Simulated assay, not measured.
Amino acid sequence: MPQDPVTEPGVSRPAVTPLDIIRVLVLLAALATLALWGFATWPLPWSIVVGIGAPVIVLVLWALVLSSKPVLRLHPFLRALVELLIYVGVTLAWWSMGSAWIGIAFAVVAVAAGVIAGRRALS
């Protein structure tokens, strides 16, 4: 009878919390928003560059600084600043597309998740 893969000896997997899922959804929403903003609001040659480039820049920043195993270990306040800059950019993208309420809703959810995760990381 094969062993259950969840209980392999010597393997420790971090528990996935609802907060982790919310943060992944916030990141996916940010990437989708920036792609939509780039493709919808810029003229044709730039729409391809911005529609692909903006989400890629955010994804690289997230991987370098904000991921669970970041490449660059920054002070927690600098991490929070990078995260807030990403959220501000996404919120401004929604505002520039004429959907201020969606931008505000995104900002509230993203900042709340970031604050809770930041407090958890500091404790």
Results as ranks from 00 to 15, higher is better:
26 V>L: 03
117 A>N: 14
118 G>P: 02
47 S>V: 02
54 A>G: 03
99 S>T: 09
84 L>S: 09
49 V>I: 15
64 L>E: 05
91 T>L: 03
115 V>D: 06
75 H>P: 02
49 V>C: 12
31 L>Y: 07
115 V>K: 06
69 K>F: 12
34 L>F: 05
30 A>M: 04
46 W>K: 11
21 I>P: 01
93 A>E: 00
98 G>S: 10
9 P>M: 11
104 I>N: 07
76 P>T: 06
36 L>I: 08
98 G>A: 08
61 L>H: 04
54 A>H: 02
111 V>S: 04
56 V>S: 11
82 V>C: 07
98 G>E: 10
108 V>M: 10
49 V>G: 12
68 S>P: 09
62 W>F: 15
59 L>Y: 05
98 G>T: 10
74 L>I: 07
8 E>A: 13
118 G>I: 01
47 S>R: 15
115 V>I: 15
72 L>D: 04
35 A>Y: 03
87 Y>S: 04
22 I>W: 07
58 V>G: 02
111 V>C: 02
38 G>Q: 01
40 A>D: 14
75 H>A: 12
92 L>R: 09
79 R>S: 13
110 A>F: 00
89 G>L: 01
116 I>K: 12
100 A>I: 08
100 A>V: 11
69 K>W: 12
71 V>G: 06
100 A>Y: 07
98 G>N: 08
67 S>V: 09
87 Y>I: 07
115 V>H: 09
113 A>V: 04
98 G>Y: 12
55 P>L: 08
89 G>N: 05
12 S>L: 14
86 I>M: 09
10 G>E: 08
18 P>S: 12
15 A>S: 15
6 V>Y: 14
96 S>T: 05
96 S>Q: 13
19 L>T: 04
115 V>M: 13
77 F>H: 11
82 V>T: 05
65 V>T: 14
120 R>W: 10
4 D>S: 13
106 F>C: 01
